[in-house]
């Protein structure tokens, strides 16, 4: 018996080492290769260095920005608007979704109007928003919510409808109040749909806020990117583009954390 087990042990250890190598060393090597290639091509002027500053210069510009007051302001401006937009669109989308999900005739009545409004590219509203709301962060908030609301609403409606019929029957025979029914049956059955739509909304809201910052020129990451370009400082521009990417990754990670937390609470509560 031991004779059979023994030889597999070193093999497994070897396998683990290989996966660590594959999971960390391989991607790291690829990133280093890309950065090295970029550095080489720009230093030798294969890529015009006035458009593409070498990676090392971009990195230096990035470090420089940390001591400038522009960065915390820009980051703060973008992130506060983002959080507001995400919370509003998720809460609003879920609430309206529950309403339309429960009242079938109302949903059928409004469906074509929703289907028409949903694909309207919200950036098309920028000129209107500038005239009526102005050029403050409220405009960006409105645009982001308008875009993300539909992304939450449609899955929310489907989620409400996906509640198990037996569960609904049980709720009825136990004389659940409407609130109890929503809290204990409808919301849990919506969870998987909500998770996906929140993930979509995370990136949609960020895109629209950065767009608003670029087009309307309101303070934030997008504004710093365009300003760096018009000031002829490409290294700083790339530094801010990279920063917006990092912000995107961090935000996605954060949303996933919250999701996991909510899912675990819901899981223990459900059992």
């Amino acid at each position: 018996m031991t004779a059979v087990v023994a030889p597999t042990a070193p093999k497994r250890r070897h396998g683990a080492a290989a996966t660590v190598g594959r999971r960390f060393i391989l991607p790291a090597a690829f990133i280093v290769f890309l950065i090295g290639l970029q550095e080489l091509l720009t230093r030798t002027d294969v890529l015009p260095s006035n458009y593409f500053p070498p990676a090392s210069k971009i990195f230096m510009a990035f470090i420089d920005e940390f001591s400038s007051p522009a960065l915390p302001d820009a980051l703060f401006g973008t992130l506060t608007t983002w959080i507001q937009a995400l919370v509003i669109s998720v809460v609003l989308g879920t609430a309206v979704g529950i309403l339309l999900g429960l009242i079938v005739p109302l949903e059928a009545f409004l469906r074509p109007t929703i289907e028409f409004l949903r694909p309207v590219p919200s950036v098309a509203l920028i000129p209107l928003v500038v005239l009526t709301i102005g050029t403050g962060s409220d405009s960006a908030l409105f645009l982001a919510v308008f875009a993300a609301f539909w992304q939450v609403l449609i899955p929310a409606i489907i989620g409400v409808r996906s509640a198990h019929p037996v569960a609904l029957e049980t709720a009825r025979s136990y004389n659940f109040t409407l609130w109890q029914r929503i809290r204990y049956i409808q919301l849990p059955s919506m969870m998987p749909y909500l998770v996906t739509s929140i993930r979509l909304a995370t990136s949609t809201t960020l895109i629209l806020i950065v767009t608003a910052e670029i087009i309307i020129q309101m303070p934030g990451l997008g504004y710093e990117i365009t300003m760096s370009r018009s000031a002829g400082n490409p290294a700083r521009m790339y530094a801010y583009i990279a920063l917006s990417g990092i912000a995107g990754i961090v935000l996605n990670g954060l949303v996933r954390q919250v999701e996991a937390r909510v899912a675990s609470i819901h899981g223990s509560g459900g059992k």
Binding site: P27, Y51, I207, T211, R229, A242, G245, I246, I249, N252
Partner: peptide
């Protein structure tokens, strides 16, 4: 699988950049 493991963090990063943030970059190019 080997290509996926090598490029996925890089892709993850590139994807996280809001597409409109690249407008100035595209204008420059």
């Amino acid at each position: 699988a080997i290509v996926e493991q090598a490029v996925s963090p890089t892709l993850e990063f590139a994807r996280a950049i809001p597409a409109t943030a690249l407008i100035p970059f595209a204008l420059m190019l």
